[in-house]
Amino acid sequence: MAEVKQADDGVQIDLISGERMEGMASMEKIRMILDGVHEGNIVILEEGLSPDEESKLIEVTMTEISPDEFNGIEIETYPKGDTADSGLFDRLMGKDPETKKLTVIGPANQIETLHKDETLISALVSRK
């Protein structure tokens, strides 16, 4: 992640490549995401998280919520499409389409989803 300092009147956006995430352990990914979000950044993951990582992300987020400081996260991915053709074989080959979806995560009090469907996520981001 480029260490761009957040300007007073701007919002930092971190676009994290699938390649960068590949070598990371689940908890490292979650830490990286939540550290960014705590600073008021919008974190965009090129390839998203696995269901297990999403579950841990929710769990860790809950433990970090603190009144008047941190309300939690807003997270958006595209809704899952037709999974009829993603069999066990694809999963074994690591080709699970559900885990390869662009994911946007931000502080709950700064990001609001305006519209979302299978192919489009539209969000409003406000300053801290």
């Binding site: 999403e54 579950s55 958006e76 899952k80």
Partner: peptide
């Protein structure tokens, strides 16, 4: 909603 999508996925 995202929560439903994620939970059902999990």
């Amino acid at each position: 909603t995202q929560v439903n999508t994620m939970l059902v996925g999990i």
